[in-house]
Simulated assay, not measured.
Amino acid sequence: MATKQKMVKHKTKDTNVTFNASSLNSSVIEKKLFAEREEDGDDGPVVFYCGKCRLTVGDSLSWDGSEDGENQIRLKTVTDNVQFGNESHVYEVNKLSPCLVVDLFCRGCRSVIGLVYTSTPKSMDNKRFTFCLNVANIESYVLGSGTQMLTVEGLKELPVTLEYRGSVDQQLKEMKMLMVSMAQRLEVIEAGLEERSDEV
Rank of each mutant, 00 (worst) to 15 (best):
L33W: 10
V82Q: 02
T18N: 15
K31N: 10
R54Y: 06
V135A: 04
L172Y: 07
G144I: 05
L143K: 14
Q184H: 01
D59N: 14
T3G: 09
N94G: 09
V135G: 09
N71A: 08
C53N: 07
M179T: 01
D68V: 08
G108M: 00
L162W: 13
N71G: 15
K95N: 08
V8L: 12
S66Q: 15
L150W: 00
L143V: 13
V168K: 14
K31M: 07
V28L: 13
Y141Q: 10
E39F: 02
Q72V: 11
V142Q: 14
L143D: 12
V28D: 13
F48E: 07
P45N: 14
V168G: 09
S167Y: 11
I29A: 05
F48G: 07
N137L: 03
R185S: 14
Y91A: 07
V135F: 03
Q148F: 01
L178E: 11
E30T: 01
G146C: 07
E163C: 04
K95F: 07
K52T: 09
C109F: 00
R185A: 14
E139D: 14
S140K: 01
R54W: 05
L133N: 02
D80I: 00
N126P: 06
N134K: 02
T3F: 05
K11A: 03
F19I: 06
K173D: 11
I189T: 13
V142A: 15
E36C: 11
V8S: 07
T118D: 01
C99W: 00
N81V: 04
E174L: 12
R185I: 02
F34E: 12
S181D: 13
E163A: 15
G166D: 15
N71R: 11
T15M: 07
L33I: 09
V152D: 06
T3L: 13
E38A: 06
V135E: 08
G154E: 06
V160M: 11
S181G: 13
K6M: 10
L162P: 13
Q5N: 08
G65M: 02
K9W: 00
V101T: 12
L100C: 04
V28M: 11
V8E: 05
G44V: 06
T15Q: 09
T161L: 07
C50E: 05
R196W: 03
G146T: 04
R196P: 00
C106S: 07
D64W: 04
D103E: 14
P121Q: 01
C106M: 02
D125P: 01
Y141W: 14
A21Y: 02
I73M: 05
S26P: 12
K156V: 03
G69L: 11
D169R: 15
V8M: 06
P159H: 01
T151V: 03
G69W: 10
T151G: 01
E194V: 13
L104T: 02
S145T: 04
E92R: 03
V17H: 15
P45I: 12
N137G: 07
N25W: 04
S111M: 06
E187L: 06
D125A: 12
S140H: 12
D68M: 04
L193G: 11
E199A: 15
L186N: 10
S97V: 01
V102C: 10
